[in-house]
Nucleic acid binder design. Structure first.
Lengths: 229, 229
DNA sequence: GAGATAATCAAGTAAGTACTTGAATACTTG
DNA sequence: CAAGTATTCAAGTACTTACTTGATTATCTC
């Protein structure tokens, strides 16, 4: 019965997709690439690994088909090969948050205590934006803002936030967002703003989820029409 | 900066979910458990591995939270820990079919040439069932039928099909279904039926997808009301 | 309680993985 | 074409994984 071997190979091929996501470093890479394409050395810096090691992880992702790459001059830019990849990563996070016992503990160790920070869901934020009483802050690094952001958001990377508080209009609540539910930037931004007496909340998840939900986005170049909610 | 270590641990924990699905054998186990709970030796036989090895894979799945177990007498039954797990497995399959280059080739090697077999989507099948001109055949092993099947389906495991052809009413098309898109049983059933001159098609995916879509199902004991489509 | 069955555990082996270091390649700019 | 930058490749090491075999534990039946 050589059928067994064929079945094994088929399921190995299906599982190869999960296998390649089954490394924390590669998961971080996918989380970053869900914000838009990036060059190798930017990714390496983002995940805190050597360029050589990062390059090898990217080769893995490339071979398994989860990312594509393009060369521009001396730099090589990587991007997710399609929206299904970001959805898969979201499914992984969801199952982990439901079923991995120690996840809350690890999240608190990295993100700090979130219990004091109030959050908005995507639809709540959309409705508040329509009301006009809220300022939306994209606190990710600027290149990520440029490759796509919530329509109407202002870019203030969290590193520059403390110095740029004067730019914020008075009398408005600020809603900060970043990469996703396990991204620190928005938490940090909310804490900074509150320390200065500015009412602030964070978006529950991040930009990729907003985009995937068909809510209105823009890039530095063009503006998309509002999607169906 | 010890923040890096905390971030690494968090993403390792998120990725652990993908890692445990990243073995072809464990993926097969999840595919089987998506049909309902099973005992260790049944699973071992299903995936063609030793009981000891299967048990160890199940321990992995248990530790990572993807499955739960319960003891009944001398047997230990495993089941998926929630609907999110089946959804994750579906997301993995989808990304694989979109982006893994050699997948079609491997699928053909295992499943045979499918080009001659026509398929119905879930909604097409539901509509044909409402019309009453179609017989729906569940060709999975009987225990899987018992733990849940499409409402109105008849159980004829593919191994018994050739001997039970007389049971089928004349003048109807037969729609066969099994575990999912990479399950051979329905393909085999359609080929057998056609060889005997009975018009037959297969459901595009399988029982777990039908159930997840909220379409009407029953178990050997009870019948659920038709869900929203 | 003896015997049978189902599952797990423990130890061993072969193969694979993650990271490091240093060299090689590809392209750009002067 | 020489020098510089971005990336990949190759080789090495420490660690992990998948499977095997044989022994052990848990429960049921008589």
């Amino acid at each position: 019965m050589d059928d067994r071997a064929a079945k094994d190979e088929l399921f190995d091929a299906l599982a190869s997709v999960a296998k390649v996501l089954g490394s924390g470093r590669r998961a971080e890479i996918v989380d970053v690439l869900a914000q838009g394409e990036r060059a190798v050395d930017e990714i390496a810096q983002e995940i805190g690994q050597s360029v050589a090691n990062t390059s090898q992880h990217l080769q893995h992702l490339l071979r398994s088909g989860l990312v594509h790459s393009r060369r521009d001059g001396t730099r090589i830019y990587y991007r997710l090969s399609g929206p299904g990849v970001a959805q898969l990563w979201a499914a992984v996070r969801l199952v982990a948050s439901d079923h991995v016992a120690k996840l809350n503990e690890l999240a608190t160790a990295y993100l700090g205590d979130r219990s004091a920070l109030s959050t908005l869901t995507r639809t709540e934020l959309r409705d508040r934006m329509a009301g006009g009483d809220i300022v939306v802050l994209d606190v990710r690094p600027e290149p990520e803002f440029r490759s796509g952001h919530i329509a109407g958001a202002v870019s203030v990377p969290v590193k520059e936030l403390a110095e740029r508080l004067r730019e914020l209009p008075d009398g408005h609540t600020v809603a900060a967002y970043c990469r996703g539910p396990y991204c620190v930037f928005a938490d940090e931004a909310v804490r900074t703003l509150r320390r200065h007496g500015i009412p602030a909340v964070r978006l529950e998840d991040g930009y990729p989820e907003w985009e995937a939900a068909g809510l209105p986005v823009e890039t530095s170049a063009s503006t998309t029409p509002a999607g169906t909610s």
